[in-house]
């Protein structure tokens, strides 16, 4: 398999996803099959090819530095699961909370 169970755990940690131990085998298998398919790209010699990151031939887009209307703090935070005075509340990150 192109992706071991340990690697799946590593990637899941990077992505802040928790994979159940019971799902690990299947996830590694599924992702490995997709990666095996993707291996097709190695048929191509791309040594001298430049990458395409976006297709619009555009350079920096400028605008004038003028203050415009924006959302109020109340509106901008209205969808937070826990909000106090237009501020997001999160579990404690210090004192052992953030390891």
């Amino acid at each position: 398999m192109l992706l071991s169970k340990e690697e799946v755990l590593h990637v899941a940690n990077l992505a802040r996803l928790s994979v159940e131990p019971s799902e690990l085998e299947e996830m590694a298998g599924t992702l490995s099959r997709v990666l095996e398919y993707i291996d097709l790209l190695n048929e191509l010699d791309t040594e001298s090819v430049s990458p395409t990151s976006q297709v619009v031939e555009q350079h920096t887009v400028w605008r004038s530095d003028v203050i415009q209307d924006s959302l109020s703090a109340e509106l901008a935070t209205q969808n937070g699961p826990q909000v106090v005075s237009a501020m997001f509340v999160v579990p404690k990150i210090l004192d052992g909370g953030g390891q």
Binding site: A12, N13, R16, L17, S18, T77, N79, G80, P81, Q82, F88, V90, P91, K92, I93, G96, G97, G98, Q99
Partner: peptide, 19 residues
């Protein structure tokens, strides 16, 4: 990430809350 949009699963610390 459970902070700015609707759904949040509770957890004792921030990292576990994210995942």
């Amino acid at each position: 990430d459970g902070v700015r949009y609707g759904f949040r699963e509770t957890a004792p610390d921030l990292i576990q809350m994210y995942s």
